[in-house]
Nucleic acid binder design. Structure first.
Lengths: 234, 234
DNA sequence: GAGTGGTCTAGACCACAGA
DNA sequence: CTGTGGTCTAGACCACTCT
């Protein structure tokens, strides 16, 4: 049994008033001095509560002026890079992997450019199909920079997914992605067991680890079996 | 000219060591007592620095045990609800709107359920097509809860987008979304000027404002003309 | 000048982990 | 038990806004 910290009580007090609509965007929030008196706590504690609410985007604070309920012009959500094995396991399902290609190849001009390497430099290339309860849900076509993960090809991809391997051996420092709707290529359709006319979600992802571009991946999800979902919380 | 706060200096000190790879995931971070001595500052200040790094996901703290560099199992990115007019304008392009349907209708059972209203309750319904430089980029089919925005239908949707109107009149408190790849319906294909076999990104979005579910929208983007993109930063 | 928030200190008590 | 982080206080000085 733990007491709820004072700063949490202050945050909760303010949060509920904003959520209920009692305090509307632009309205002033009681000053630190007010809240000190009202809750009978020290200013550092009130300050922490308000500072955290500000970091969460619920209030705007202006030195010399005061604290107001923020205008939620943009509410935002977190989209996370997760290991697909973990994601499937979390749904209580069985994840398996079919290995299609594992090779060391000369980089095409496009791939070389992504890695900032010379054209023709050797890179690692894997193509895997991820299955959830034996149904294909992701086609993963990935190039890996040997400088970032020299032993990548030694991995048993049926036991350790590329994402997990890379998270462990080439800690992420930065990444970028895009999500599109596309039709699958002939090979993708065949491996995923869908028709060439079935729309798919395609995520292109580029990850950076320290000084290296570590990996460039094309992840194809059958549109009929997968969606990205999330919640926004103010 | 402002001095950099002490807690920021501590954060920066730790951040650079993590980013450079000098401290790897799982490695211990100096304890609060160590950092107090090293920087010659009080514990509250060190504590603030470490607490904020923890909130940012860069370190993990365990009471009684210590602070360690976090394993970036999941790096995350912000996906933002934005007004499409603003988004197009930011690209330096011209945004226009074609109004297809503006009506007050009895809610279907599904829509009523979303709004937690009785089946057959009256709701607002709009269908718009958003164009970027005269090319359709979004088909917006939206239901709005009259309780959350009673004057919604009076809006001139060629001048104020539904998203903007709702952000102003029904401040967001919560939202959820999903993104899928689908083929467009016959009407969507016609309005967007794409073939029925052209894959589209479909975002379903549900927004909550105070006590009400404010709006449920189906946003259809031609896959050939649009993608969601973003960056991840640790 | 009065009121606001931004930062900082030097203590304190507590809960928890690990040897 | 020692060392860790979690919380809190009662002051303090400063920078800023608004009138």
């Amino acid at each position: 049994m733990r007491a709820i910290p004072a700063y949490e009580q202050v945050k909760e007090f303010i949060r509920t008033r904003i959520a209920s609509g009692e305090w509307r965007p632009g309205d002033p929030v009681p000053s630190e001095a007010m809240l000190m008196a009202q809750f009978g706590i020290s200013r550092m504690t009130v300050n922490r509560a308000l500072r955290e609410l500000s970091a969460e985007g619920l209030v705007d604070r202006v030195q010399g002026s005061g604290t107001r309920v923020a205008h939620l012009h943009r509410i935002s959500s977190r989209l996370v890079i997760r290991d697909i094995h973990e994601e499937v396991a979390e749904r209580g399902h069985v994840h398996t992997t079919r290995v299609v290609v594992v090779e060391r190849v000369k980089a095409s001009p496009e791939v070389a450019a992504s890695f900032q390497l010379k054209a023709g430099a050797k890179v690692f290339h894997t193509v895997l199909v991820h299955l959830e309860n034996a149904v294909p849900i992701q086609y993963e076509d990935r190039y890996v920079n040997p400088a970032a993960a020299p032993d990548y090809l030694d991995t048993d991809f049926t036991r350790t997914s590329p994402t997990l391997y890379l998270l462990r051996h080439a800690p992420l420092t930065e990444a970028s992605y895009s999500i599109e709707a596309c039709l699958p290529t002939a090979q993708e359709a065949r491996e995923l067991g869908v028709k060439r006319t079935d729309p798919c979600l395609v995520m292109m992802r580029r990850t950076v680890s320290g000084p290296h571009v570590a990996s460039v991946a094309r992840l194809v999800y059958p549109g009929t079996r997968y969606s990205f979902a999330g919640e926004f919380q103010a």
